[in-house]
């Protein structure tokens, strides 16, 4: 493994990324903070832990690793990571969801460099990822394909069509990461449709290797990614990452209500404080960017 930032450094990147994500959603006045915050540590470890071979200067070079954000509503988190990686200017994050912005409400390959597939309609990303993994075989390339899934979208039948088919074609270097924050739009997952559990058994029955981790513990995340890289040479790998929806912002944590709404000014300030932003910085940000008040 190439040298990578320490765990403390990764955690600091994630904290800053959470701040930018919430700023973007606040300015947009809409968006999905809960699922953006829950997947953040998984994204930071992936992109800054050395697991994704991408070049922001040449975002679609043929041998790059592919990351498909199947849970397309986590777009604010994904855009923040892409901006931090240098795919585009960070200022662009503050145009999220605005007319004419390249940062669409759900990720779109047509609009944003670094995005591999246009998603937003759930349950489709694993199929797309499988197609990309099979393309590597056709072209004799050995790039990796990561599909970042929500737990709720495991209710979509198409996810399992793809899971079965990946086994049939012995897909290589295909890794699914499931952000298991246990909340979907209406309520906690077990209250809406508990049938997705147990997750591991289902993927195993489809011929996948599974790993279960705490999706906010960097030691566990990095170990899981290392294991996935090895095992995915033989069979597809699903990492079930148990996460906290809204992670990092106390009043959002584990609360279905924060699945898909933006904080108002008061709540925004509270969130920023939770994430360690000083009052002076918050004030500066609001006076520069907040056109709502």
């Amino acid at each position: 493994m190439v040298s990578r930032p320490s765990i403390q450094e990764l955690q600091e990147i994630a904290r800053r990324a959470r701040i930018e994500t919430i700023k973007a959603i606040y300015l947009a006045g809409s968006g999905h903070p809960g699922g953006s915050l829950s997947i953040m540590d998984l994204l930071v470890a992936l992109y800054f832990g050395g697991y994704v071979n991408v070049d922001p200067k040449n975002p679609y070079k043929p041998d790059r690793d592919r990351v498909i954000l199947s849970k397309g509503h986590a777009a604010p988190a994904f855009y923040t990571i892409l901006a931090f990686k240098g795919f585009f200017d960070k200022e662009l994050l503050y145009t999220l969801r605005q007319l004419g912005s390249p940062l669409q409400g759900h990720v779109s390959r047509k609009h944003t460099p670094g995005v591999e597939a246009s998603t937003g309609s759930l349950g489709q990303g694993l199929s797309i990822a499988l197609g990309m993994a099979l393309k590597a075989r056709v072209d004799g390339l050995d790039y990796r394909t990561y599909a970042l899934l929500s737990d709720g979208e495991l209710q979509e039948g198409m996810t399992w069509e793809a899971a079965m088919t990946a086994k049939h074609f012995k897909a290589k270097r295909l890794i699914a990461v499931i952000d298991n924050n246990n909340i979907q739009l209406d309520d906690f997952v077990p209250k809406v449709n508990s049938g997705i559990y147990p997750i591991e058994d289902k993927f195993q029955a489809c011929g996948w290797h599974t790993i279960t981790i705490d999706g906010h513990d960097y030691n566990q995340i990095l170990e899981a990614y290392d294991e996935a890289l090895k095992v995915s040479e033989e069979k597809p790998v699903a990492i079930r990452a148990i996460t906290v929806k809204g992670k990092g912002v106390k009043f959002m944590e584990n609360t279905p209500a924060w699945h898909g709404k933006a904080p108002d000014r008061e709540k925004f300030i509270e969130a920023m404080k939770d994430l360690g932003v000083s009052e002076k910085e918050i004030e500066e940000f609001l006076s520069k960017y907040d056109r709502k008040n």
């Binding site: 679609y60 043929p62 390959r109 591999e116 597939a117 489709q124 694993l126 199929s127 797309i128 990822a129 499988l130 197609g131 990309m132 993994a133 099979l134 393309k135 075989r137 056709v138 039948g157 198409m158 069509e161 793809a162 079965m164 088919t165 049939h168 074609f169």
Partner: peptide, 26 residues
């Protein structure tokens, strides 16, 4: 046979996999 994929009876996945193969437009 290496460029042909019979995915079985799952047309949503059929189009999904076809799209994954085609996203680079190459």
């Amino acid at each position: 046979p290496d460029r042909f994929f019979n995915v079985g009876i799952d047309e949503q996945n059929l189009v999904g996999v076809a799209s994954g193969l085609a996203y680079d437009k190459d």
